[in-house]
Simulated scan of single mutants.
Amino acid sequence: MAQRITTLVLLIEILFLVNYISQITTTAAENDADVIHVAGKVMCQDCTLNYDKWINGSEPIKGAVVSITCMDERRRVRYYGSDKTDERGQFDLIVNRVLYGGKDLKAHLCKVRLVSSPDQSCNIPTNYGNGQSGVELVRPLMVFKDLVKFVVGPFYYTTPMCETPKFENNY
């Protein structure tokens, strides 16, 4: 019984330490970086394929548009930008943290979301990975000197056949 209590106390201490380090990293990212760097990927997922091909057969979308919107504490838009994906479906948004006039952007008040797909056969946005509703930049993947990098997604579009029908009066 004493060994279980000791193990439990040790686990709680480890969780506390991990949370503390995470908060330090996030705070350092907010205060030290000159830019907010966000990377990710946009893919096409075809629901008409069998399960194995559907789960493993997503294809990158070249030219899909992804946006970043940063707000201030009073929920006013302070910055809006976008980027197109390359042939591998990857995007790379780089935003200066200090705006014209000396206003600072806070990464945790920014959201990244899908905007559009140039592929007419795969242009229905899904909310897998929160691509449609938007991902808040909470914890960076990497913090090094003047670089703070967030990675989001992958985000997915699907085919028009896979779109969920919308019913009138929620029926």
Rank of each mutant, 00 (worst) to 15 (best):
E136L: 07
E87S: 05
V151S: 10
T85E: 08
A33Q: 01
I14D: 14
Y80F: 04
D46H: 03
K106R: 05
L114K: 11
E136A: 10
G102V: 11
E59V: 13
Y79C: 09
K62P: 01
I55P: 02
L49F: 00
S22Y: 02
E136F: 10
K62S: 13
L99F: 00
P165V: 00
L49T: 07
I5E: 10
V66C: 02
E30H: 01
N96Y: 01
T69E: 14
V77Y: 05
N31V: 08
Y100A: 04
W54R: 15
L141N: 09
Y157I: 11
C110V: 11
I68V: 14
L105A: 02
N56T: 12
K53P: 03
P165Y: 00
V95R: 08
M161I: 07
Q132I: 06
R97L: 05
N50F: 05
S116K: 08
K149Q: 13
R78S: 14
L99R: 07
F144L: 13
I61K: 03
E163P: 01
E136Q: 13
I68P: 02
I124M: 08
Q3I: 10
K103C: 04
Y100C: 00
I94G: 03
C122W: 06
F144G: 08
L8H: 07
N50C: 00
T85V: 04
T26N: 14
R139Q: 11
K145S: 12
D46N: 06
A33V: 09
Y171F: 01
R76F: 06
K53M: 11
R97T: 03
E30S: 04
I61M: 02
A28F: 02
D83M: 06
N56Q: 07
M1Q: 05
P140R: 05
T126G: 00
T69S: 07
V42W: 03
V112L: 08
Q120L: 09
V152A: 06
Q3A: 07
D34I: 00
Y157C: 04
G153E: 08
G101L: 09
F167S: 01
S22G: 14
C110M: 12
D86G: 06
S22I: 07
L114E: 09
S121T: 13
R88N: 14
L15K: 15
M142A: 07
V143K: 14
R97H: 06
V35M: 10
C44I: 04
M71P: 05
